[in-house]
Write a protein that binds this DNA or RNA. Structure first.
Lengths: 342, 342
DNA sequence: GTTTAGCACTCTCGTTGTTAGAGTGCTAAC
DNA sequence: GTTAGCACTCTAACAACGAGAGTGCTAAAC
């Protein structure tokens, strides 16, 4: 649907005003700050029309108008002009990310914190999931006579560790056998190839040592799984408590904490280029019906890897947040790529 | 101050009833479920007396009574009899902790989640801080020609990693030099000994290689610091949203997120044996004036190392939560100790 | 035919008044 | 020391009401 120029101006003004104040916008108020060369009656007529078309809602008869979901959608798609991030803010972001520590989690954590501060939204991010990632290195560090810490690093930079307890004593021979197996069968393999079946076959082929070494192999397989699994990081949830729009914030918070629904949501919208914006009921999850989700995928070494997302009430400042998010995903992708290759 | 037996019974009944229902307790209600062989008038007299002594508060004239901070204190110190954790719950806890993964953070994270579910409170914990901990192992894994990931493991089981970027190419010689330095000067040293001064002296002594290796040493020092720093973990904050007692939950959540105040609080109360209970304004932080904090230190290999704490409204079920917390700290300590020695 | 002034209408929100109910404190009797 | 009884107090819930904001419509103006 295409609206007339004036209707568009009015819709945009209402959206922006409502985003700024949170109050329904009346014809008079609108006139006051949007300086259109018409009277409030004209605006009223246009607003009535916009209501009829479904772009505006009215909390009750004598209140002003509020953008409907459709209204926001039209605004986001056609009316909004994005703010450019000021240069000093860009610099600030880069500075904060560059000393994050280099691991994907650390970078995303920092990015999440920065975004949360910048946007007053909750920020979620997923760790890079590279289906082509392979096991790069495995270390086994003895802690006691029967325990050791195993550390696995994948080619996508993800580091996971786990403590392993063995039944028989962890002597040098055992450790050496383990390293041999690892370098022969696991290094360079993708994590998904470390199946239980493979582990069992291997263990069997070792004969007498089988029993001693199998706890180590099991831990290895656990680690491979952990490496493969994308993780969801969450920052700034408490920002959402500042919006009156959330009467039962608990439900939303728990939803965010659970994680998998969001991971699914992200992976169901793989559109490359621009940021995805889901407004209100466009989210199929009940818990998000009053929220908007903006997310964008970052790519490491040219491949889509993970997602950075913002969650807030539907009346968030799309024009400002989308560019911020886009910028962050770009930077995050760059930093991660830089770390892996150069 | 010592109350008469009957006053004690009444106080205990009021506390328990109020904890259970959240409603002020009147003389009649009290009589109904506490089955004392007296009339409501007698109870009223006793309650009036308890109010005068400061153990009870009255929201308004015609409301029932609510325990005052002093009332809770007396209850916790003298009246409460602790529930024992049912065996099946104990088993459940052990099961969930045993497959946490073995690293202190992982264990504490699991413990926090279990406790949060069990208690409906927010759970905070601090990672073990062992002043005697030493650097146990350092690994340098090349990622690219100029980047590497450095991993440090301390004797207390803490694993930290950081990506390091070098100016000159990361060749085998450089790596070997680095490992030599590490094993000669750092392994077995406590993290606090890795001072900037030491790093600088070392770098200078290396002559021509100095420039190439110093980024690695700087990263090493960063890691040492990270290892030393106690970290605060937080679980189940959103539980607090379920209590009507928190009109501005945001402030509290932010307070918890900030972390250092809590770390201070914990380290200011180093009483060994039993759990510490701070009720309402006994907490000096403004943000905690309406909350109670229960915390207890866990010890690894016999030494006090970190803290597990619960935060909830003052009307939490002390009799149930304290034993749960105690049990968890015990288990956490045991598991961590087991991992390091055996 | 678009725009606008004017006006009646509707709805919310804050205030006020009223009532029912809960719980108290006190007094006098047991 | 305990208890029955009663007057008193305070809140929570509900209704009534007026002010204010904003609308939609109509008829006149441009």
């Amino acid at each position: 649907m295409q609206l007339s120029g004036r209707k568009e101006r009015i819709l945009a003004a209402i959206v922006e005003r409502y985003i700024a104040t949170g109050e329904p916008v009346g014809s008079k108020t609108l006139l006051e700050f949007s300086s259109m060369p018409v009277s409030s009656a004209t605006i009223r007529n246009e607003m009535a029309e916009l209501s009829r078309l479904g772009f505006l809602d009215q909390p009750h008869t004598s209140a002003g108008r509020v953008p409907s979901q459709l209204g926001y959608r039209y605004y986001v798609d056609k009316l909004m002009n994005r703010y450019e991030l000021p240069l000093n803010e860009k610099r600030l972001i880069e500075a904060r990310l560059s000393d994050a520590g280099g691991e994907p989690q650390q970078i995303l954590e920092q990015a999440g914190q920065v975004l949360a501060e910048l946007t007053n939204c909750a920020v979620v991010s997923t760790t890079p999931s590279d289906t082509n990632a392979v096991i790069r290195r495995v270390e086994l560090v003895p802690l006691g006579t029967h325990t050791a810490m195993m550390v696995m690093l994948s080619s996508s930079g993800i580091l996971k560790s786990r403590v392993c307890r063995t039944d028989s004593e962890l002597n040098l021979e055992l450790i050496e056998t383990f390293y041999n197996i690892v370098s022969k069968h696991f290094i360079g393999k993708s994590a998904s190839e470390v199946s239980i079946a493979l582990i069992q076959t291997l263990a069997l082929s070792l004969g007498s040592k089988s029993l001693a070494i199998s706890p180590l192999l099991v831990t290895l397989s656990d680690l491979a799984q952990m490496t493969e699994q994308t993780q969801l990081l969450l920052e700034g949830q408490s920002n959402l408590l500042n919006y009156a729009d959330y009467p039962n914030a608990y439900e939303l918070m728990e939803f965010l904490r659970r994680g998998e629904p969001l991971t699914n949501l992200f992976s169901n919208h793989k559109s490359q280029g621009d940021a995805n914006v889901l407004i209100g009921k466009e989210n199929l999850y009940r818990e998000l019906q009053d929220s908007s989700v903006i997310f964008s995928h970052y790519s490491v070494s040219g491949k889509d890897s993970g997602t950075l997302g913002l969650i807030g009430p539907t009346r968030i400042d799309y024009a400002r947040l989308i560019p911020s998010l886009k910028y962050l995903t770009e930077i995050v992708g760059n930093i991660m790529s830089d770390t892996l290759e150069d």
